[in-house]
Design a protein around this nucleic acid. Structure first.
Length: 288
DNA sequence: ATTTACCCTACATT
DNA sequence: AAATGTAGGGTAA
């Protein structure tokens, strides 16, 4: 084992499909390396590998911290069996979940989540990944892990300091201006993400919507993935298609109307429902 | 409440 | 072969 690294083992009693989980548009900062995956637990690089009975993780974090962050990232304290059972009463969701038994919801840190989904608008996953990698390499702090240099995701201050032109040069397009302005507000202390954690979802949502470049879809992604609000239900074109095609909802329904329908139906598990609907609808499309 | 323009990329079609 | 068209995890005017 490499020097100074901690290896932890996490037994799992529920399925875990790392490939689906890490590349399904929830997080964008993972690389396949050998039969494992290198990504991030907050600011710490980590190597994740499946083992017969669970998961093996290699990091420079102390053991306790590594366990805590991994549990948080993969939401291992959620009772996935209970969640799946509750949702499987819905035949459509039952099929989605059966197709992707190891797909899990992840949990990100608030600031990267906000930056990720600001950049995600109107872009396919490979492009989002490129934009975020470019941002990290240009403005993030370098870390050597497993013999390679990697870059932490840049802070709001680093992005604010770069200026909109430099961000645009990273091929962010019109998102450059949004990301820069939002980073400036946070860096100057004129907006705060940490306080949102203690607010009800609707109030937190209102505050996110006040940030430049944050509309309903992005706000809901930040709530779901960055703040762990499983009652949030992001409606993008894939989810819209799923609701129209599989539940017969009228195509002209507004995003707000679709969201209200889903939250009424699935309540605090709406975010889980969204994950399975989104991923299944999208992968069905990719197979065609 | 609806429509439109916005930056950029990948891929299909002509 | 180069040009044109289209769709893509949306937001703000």
């Amino acid at each position: 084992m490499a020097q100074g690294l901690t290896c932890i083992r996490v037994p799992l009693d529920t399925p875990l499909d790392l490939e689906a989980t890490l590349f399904s548009g929830q997080d964008f900062r993972w690389d396949r390396e050998g039969d494992g995956y290198v990504g991030w637990l907050g600011d710490a690089p980590v190597l994740l590998q499946r083992a017969p009975s669970g998961l093996v993780a290699l990091t420079s974090l102390p053991e306790g911290e590594a366990h805590a962050r991994l549990r948080r990232f993969l939401r291992l304290d959620d009772d996935l069996d209970a969640i799946r059972t509750a949702l499987a009463g819905d035949g459509v969701l039952a099929r989605c979940m059966a197709s992707w038994p190891g797909l899990r919801l992840v949990r990100l840190e608030p600031w990267p989540a906000l930056a990720f989904f600001l950049c995600s608008q109107h872009a396919p996953i490979p492009r989002i990944t490129r934009m975020l990698n470019a941002l990290a390499q240009a403005l993030g702090e370098p870390v050597v892990f497993l013999g390679r240099e990697r870059w932490r995701f840049p802070t709001p201050t680093a992005i604010a300091g770069a200026g909109p032109e430099r961000l645009a040069a990273l091929r962010l397009g019109y998102r450059a201006e949004y990301l820069w302005r939002t980073a400036c507000l946070l860096a100057q202390g004129r907006a705060h993400l940490d306080v949102l954690a203690s607010l009800p979802t609707e109030e937190a949502r209102r505050r996110l919507l006040a940030l430049p470049g944050v509309g309903e879809k992005v706000a809901d992604c930040v709530l779901l993935l960055g703040f762990g609000r499983t009652d949030a239900f992001p409606v993008d074109r894939w989810v819209r298609r799923a609701l129209v095609e599989w539940y017969g909802l009228p195509p002209p329904y507004t995003e707000r109307r679709l969201r209200a329908w889903a939250q009424e139906r699935w309540g605090s598990l709406a975010g889980y429902a969204q994950l399975y609907l989104f991923h299944h609808r999208r992968t069905v499309h990719l197979l065609q």
